[in-house]
Design a protein around this nucleic acid. Structure first.
Length: 301
DNA sequence: CCCCAGGTAGCCA
DNA sequence: TGGCTACATGGG
């Protein structure tokens, strides 16, 4: 394997790779993070405040390029978070997640993972992703043939696997959705590349044509897989956060929340969303209750 | 045993 | 359009 250091400021591996935006990275020892990008294996760790140590099966030049793109290292995190609103919850989310970056994931990987995500806890999504990778992904080995990891399965491999084989990976009703979507892409009946060339509303409509993809999963794929940073996925957590904190006692519709979120959180709304999601999800119920009771959005009498 | 999980599709009024 | 509800499985 190749080893080198990579300059990476404003990047916290645990916050970024352990967050709810990605599901295939492992951290066996609380220090090193292991996973694949395409067919290349990576082992990453923090070496110094602005430096990562990298071990990889990829060539150094290729590896640097892949990592810089994946972690968005050519974007200034400071300038992005400056566009976030200044309310107390948003600022607390920022302080608790310094170094959380949005990843530039492969569109297919994001699509497949979020089809699996519906009504599942994040730990279970990770288990399903690991299961399909081991069953249908390619083996990634070092030069001595030692098995390092399995790559994420291609649409073709999932299409050929069949629905029942997917179901054996304990994904329940999601097996049919994932298999049908994999078949459409494998047969060229749905073009993931074309989606990325559309404007956001059209790209969203296109993704929602796929089985198992509704508005929420479409927004996740747009945000995490296509770099549409204004896409704002509304899952049960974000709906709760927006209703409880930003509209206390009002319970607006999801449609109304969507309109509010895209306006209020600015150009990088989806980025802000990830900070709120990870922050509130880590709080215990009583802390959240206190935050809500101190919301500046409670109408003054 | 309960309730819930980064939802969606199908059905009904 | 908006409001149910089934869907599989596992964590807490």
């Amino acid at each position: 394997m190749n080893s080198f250091n990579l300059r990476a400021s404003d990047l916290d591996l645990a916050l970024t790779l352990g967050s709810g935006q990605v599901f295939h990275w492992r951290c066996p020892d609380r220090v090193q993070w292991e996973g694949c990008l395409g067919m290349h294996f990576f082992r990453l760790a923090r070496r110094a405040p602005s430096t990562l140590s990298v071990h990889t099966t990829a060539g150094p030049a290729m590896a640097r390029s892949l990592l810089r793109n994946y972690f968005g290292l050519n974007h200034s995190l400071r300038s992005i978070v400056k566009t976030f609103p200044s309310d107390p919850l948003m600022q607390a989310s920022l302080q608790a997640n310094v170094g959380l970056r949005l990843l530039a994931q492969d569109a297919w990987v994001a699509l497949a993972c979020f089809i699996l995500s519906s009504t599942k806890q994040i730990i279970q999504i990770r288990q399903m992703v690991q299961a399909i990778s081991q069953a249908f992904g390619a083996e990634v080995t070092d030069q001595s043939g030692q098995l390092l990891d399995h790559s994420f399965p291609t649409p073709g491999s999932l299409a050929r696997a069949g629905e029942s084989a997917l179901r054996a990976c304990r994904m329940g009703y999601r097996a049919r959705f994932l298999h049908q979507t994999a078949c459409l892409i494998d047969q060229g009946k749905f073009d993931l590349v074309k989606v990325g060339q559309l404007a956001l509303p059209e790209a969203r409509e296109a993704l929602m044509q796929l089985p198992g993809v509704g508005p929420k999963i479409a927004d996740c794929v747009l945000l995490f897989g296509y770099g549409f940073q204004s896409a704002f996925p509304l899952d049960v957590w974000m709906i709760r956060i927006l209703r409880d904190y930003y509209f206390p006692g009002q319970s607006p519709s999801v449609k109304a929340l969507q309109a509010f979120a895209n306006d209020y959180f600015g150009r990088h709304a989806g980025y802000a969303q990830q900070y709120l999601f990870d922050h509130v999800r880590a709080l215990d119920a009583s802390t959240w209750k206190k935050l809500v009771s101190d919301s500046p959005f409670i109408p003054s009498s």
